[in-house]
Nucleic acid binder design. Structure first.
Length: 440
RNA sequence: CGGGGCGUAGCUCAGCCUGGUAGAGCGCGAGUUUUGGGAGCUCGAAGCCGGAGGUUCGAAUCCUCUCGCCCCGACCA
């Protein structure tokens, strides 16, 4: 993509409404625009990141055996009256009335909807287990939205729902999601730590929050140092989702990890040098809640002996849009965003420092063509701007690699390849740069 | 939902206290000189001063109401 043609409304100054760093950077980097409190439009750069995050979530859900569906944003109130939550949910639920005066709502979550789908289709224990998920916009009318997309009213969420015949099966479904979550966040370059959690309005008796560490996190968290030193992806790699995951689950939940309200320094089992104190952002939450919805909503299957059995359920959420902000919170510096490669909107920022210079244009154009044909996502800054402005732009939007073409280097037969993360710059030949960027 | 703050040009803000009819920097457009870390100069465009009502000869400025946004707290993917 040529930057001269790209819709990228950058802000040089900090918008006054943005308080935390991810919100500021997302606005400054032209990723989002606020529509109203807690509701945002996603502009091209931000949308690319959102899609990448979504895709990683999708791939890991699929890997675990969950199947993707898409449920509506608008739901009938009657479904929620069945579970009893229509009255329980309170003002956070956006209630709507259609032209026939029917009570509707903009879904804050989908337990009722999925249970309705399940009970209408599956009738036998032979149909179990099942895990269905979707990635859909939700709305929770937060009293006080803040922190940009981290705490919006409208947000993109992956929510999965598992159905099993008995508690043992349901625990296995829970464990599968547990593993999938560890993998998902690790792939995004995040260290997400599962912490035993309260179940809140979803209900149930087993629940874990996945918390990533970031200096600007909302709450204080405490965990075993071993968390930081482990390669989660490696540990979870090659795990067979059909095998017994309980040992893995036990291993990973045995490491100490607690949120502020659960942590008691007097009772902490860890020696001080083994304890990490940090701040955390919740990016995922998994629940096992048994028959909380299946019973009142009559989601039953015929058991092996013909008896009627309410299914054992769990639900599993990941805040997809929140993750975009959370990743920035976890990965930035004073100059701007530092995207992990897996979610970067473009892999390479190609910079022509001298837009009016024929040799520079020719060299940069040639590199752009080669990168594109190699399938490397490249944002090509072909604008006629001062060098300083171009560097600042690239650092702000945080693409992993900057490939800089200027008259100075060209005279020496080199281009400059800079890593956004480390700041390391190397003067290399065009071919060496291409090999580096396309070879991996 | 309690407490606080702010709405003036695309962005950051000054002007308001003490009423006299709109300003700066950045950005934007034109020209020119520049060109390896947010360039210089010249010229220019751009604002029902959030909205409604009131006081006044006169309101961005004072009063009332209203809408929006932000912050602190309680609550959440």
């Amino acid at each position: 993509m040529r930057l001269s043609a790209y819709f990228l409304p950058l802000l040089k100054e900090n918008p006054s409404e943005a308080q935390i760093v991810s919100h500021r950077l997302m606005l400054r980097a032209g990723m989002i625009r606020q529509s109203s409190a807690g509701i945002y439009s996603w502009l091209p750069l931000g949308f690319r990141v959102l899609k990448k995050v979504e895709q990683i979530v999708r791939e890991e859900q699929d890997r675990s055996g969950a199947q993707e569906v898409l449920m509506p944003t608008i739901q009938p109130a009657d479904l929620w009256r069945e579970s009893g939550r229509y009255d329980d949910y309170g003002k956070e639920m956006l209630r709507i009335r259609d032209r026939h005066e029917r009570d509707m709502l903009y879904g804050p979550t989908n337990e009722e909807q999925i249970t309705d789908i399940f009970r209408g289709a599956l009738k036998s224990y032979r149909d179990l287990p099942k895990n269905l998920y979707h990635i859909q916009w939700k709305f929770r009318d937060e009293v006080r939205p803040r922190f940009g997309v981290m705490r919006g009213r409208e947000f993109l969420m992956k929510d999965a729902y598992s159905f099993d015949l008995d508690a043992k099966g349901a625990k296995h479904s829970y464990n599968k999601m547990f593993v999938a979550y560890l993998r998902t966040f690790a792939r995004m370059g995040l260290k997400a730590i599962p912490m035993r959690a309260e179940t809140g309005p979803i209900g149930g008796d087993l629940s874990h929050e996945f918390i990533i560490l970031a200096e600007t996190g909302e709450s204080a968290v405490y965990c075993d140092k071993a968390w930081l030193e482990t390669d989660i992806l490696k540990a979870a790699d090659g795990l067979d989702f059909d095998s017994d995951l309980e040992p893995f689950f036990r291993q990973w939940t045995s490491l100490y990890a607690a949120t502020d309200d659960m942590h008691d320094p007097a009772k902490c089992p860890l020696p001080a040098e083994q304890l990490v104190t940090a701040r955390g952002i919740e990016v995922g939450h998994i629940f096992f809640f048994g028959t909380k919805y299946s019973k009142p909503m009559n989601a039953v299957v015929a058991g092996p002996k013909g008896e009627s059995v309410p299914v054992e359920m769990g639900s599993y959420g990941i805040g997809v849009s929140r993750l975009v902000g959370a990743i920035i919170e976890a990965s930035h510096d004073e100059r701007g965003i530092i995207w992990p490669e897996a979610v970067a909107p473009f892999r390479v920022g190609l910079v022509n420092l001298r837009a009016g210079d024929a040799a520079c244009v020719a060299a940069a154009d040639a590199l752009y063509t080669r990168l594109r044909s190699a399938g490397v996502e490249t944002l090509y800054d072909d604008r006629d701007e001062s060098p300083g402005g171009k560097f600042a732009t690239m650092d702000l939007i945080g693409l992993p690699w900057q490939l800089v073409i200027g008259p100075r280097g060209l005279a020496a037969g080199t281009v400059e390849l800079k890593s956004r993360r480390t700041g390391e710059r190397q003067e290399v030949s065009s071919e060496a740069a291409l090999a580096k960027l396309t070879g991996e």
